[in-house]
Design a protein around this nucleic acid. Structure first.
Lengths: 254, 254
DNA sequence: CCATCTTTGTGCACGCGTTCACAAAGACAT
DNA sequence: ATGTCTTTGTGAACGCGTGCACAAAGATGG
């Protein structure tokens, strides 16, 4: 039982940086939108704007995949969609199980973005016997007892954990033992997994806390600006200042 | 209307690196668990293990906040909980609005992790008139028409967008115009916001796609290993090999 | 009061990711 | 065919984040 590693230290499969891999889905989405509008080619500048990144970064990202562009013209949209899909492994269909069909699990089951991108919800699993058989998003929920059988019968290698924090580690271990090697974890816990298993974590409250930090910082700078130190970038409504005032730190007007 | 910036380029408010800020909530969660078990002090090594990070990294992170540890002993749990909470701005209560009460929005409204950490759901907003008045997680849903009034009356500065992609940008603009300066975006779109507004993006399908990439890579290495190039790290069930076979790239056994 | 032992705080080096800036490559017009 | 113009692909520099390794600091025991 290894210590919980969330991120691979030195992945770099055939030389594609992790940061680039994380952006490929972004490019793919922008390209798909262009494809639906029957746009034949796109320049790095345009595509970068659509994906919200720097154009040089985008070109370097694509350079890791090969030379798929034409100088003076840009990139062929359809061809690029195919190449990125292939690189991400989306030309095949990945069966996925979702464990924990609470509010979040149900939302995930209903999320359209899965089916559209090479993922297929193979099964919904919940520990509550009362849920068993009840259809969610058109798929009947199955009991946790069936977990191992479901994984093996469907050749599932990707599992989504949407259980309460307390159950996550146990579910994780059962998934891994049954053959799952990639886990998307929505439970607010650090999962311990053996080497060779990938875990990605999505934590709603962490994201909010990061926003709160920046929000507080903005409020602090604003207070400093009112002191005449820094010109305020944007004039904020005075009424909104009511928000951050609980205990403004260090830089209080005194 | 500036080009959509998702991440702050050179934030570093008073010297706290962005990467550190992103880990503070992680430490805070681990510390809270210790606090509930009435553990008085904790060493960097123990806490790092609980949070799933390197101990040196943890110590360096804390060093940005100040010298809160005692050499030879460790960190005082309660004190550290307070310091991190304060740094993240969680000693005050942040009113938050959730826009788009579909499956995901409802899941977010029900998510317990919010209230427990300084966040308060001030309002649920949806464009569907049929939803208006219907209680979700004990809070009545309000119509989009009320958006501006709600934001201003409650001094809301953090908004969560859980609408379909098509509506996201428009909702975003209304939120910002009404005074929101931090946005957590669950819609699969790149949002354009003016300077001074923070956007964080959570994209379920992107996370899955990244997992699929690594999963495919593992399958490829496995095939190579079967050729006798690399010793297989973990013996996988033969039945599971059924998964990745659609069109294995480059490194096929031929 | 001194020695020893534990654990923090950090200087330093290294590697990854980002960005700039430009040469090479191709399209297109003449 | 030749020149011009656009856009890619990438070399190089820079900055951030990470992890090692150790000195400084304090606790603890004699």
């Amino acid at each position: 039982m290894a210590t919980g590693r969330t991120h691979r230290p030195a992945t770099r499969s055939r030389g594609i940086p992790e940061a680039t891999v994380a952006r490929l889905p972004l490019y793919l989405r922008a390209l798909t939108a262009l494809s639906e509008r029957s746009v034949p080619t796109v320049s790095s500048e345009e595509l970068a704007a659509a994906a919200g990144v720097n154009s040089a970064k985008l070109r370097k990202d694509f350079s890791y995949l090969g030379s798929y562009g034409t100088r003076g013209v840009g990139y062929d949209v359809e061809y690029l969609v195919y190449q990125i899909s292939r690189e991400l492994g989306l030309t095949q269909d990945w069966p996925v199980v979702i464990v924990g069909i609470g509010n979040l699990g149900a939302a995930l089951a209903n999320y359209g973005g899965f089916a559209s991108r090479g993922f297929r919800v193979a099964a919904l699993i919940d520990a509550d016997p009362a849920m068993a058989g009840k259809p969610v998003a058109g798929i009947p929920v199955q009991h946790t007892d069936e977990l191992e059988k479901i994984i093996e019968d469907n050749g599932v290698s990707i599992g989504v954990i949407a259980t309460p924090a307390g159950a996550a580690q146990q579910v994780c271990e059962r998934l891994v033992a049954a053959g799952v090697t990639s886990i998307l974890n929505f439970a607010p816990t650090v999962l311990s997994v053996p080497d060779g298993v990938d875990v990605r974590k999505v934590d709603l409250s962490i994201e909010l806390q990061i926003l709160a930090f920046h929000e507080q910082r903005k409020a602090g700078e604003e207070a400093a600006a009112a002191d005449g130190q820094v010109p305020p970038a944007v004039a904020r409504k005075a009424s909104a200042d009511k928000g951050p005032d609980g205990d403004v730190p260090a830089v209080m007007p005194a």
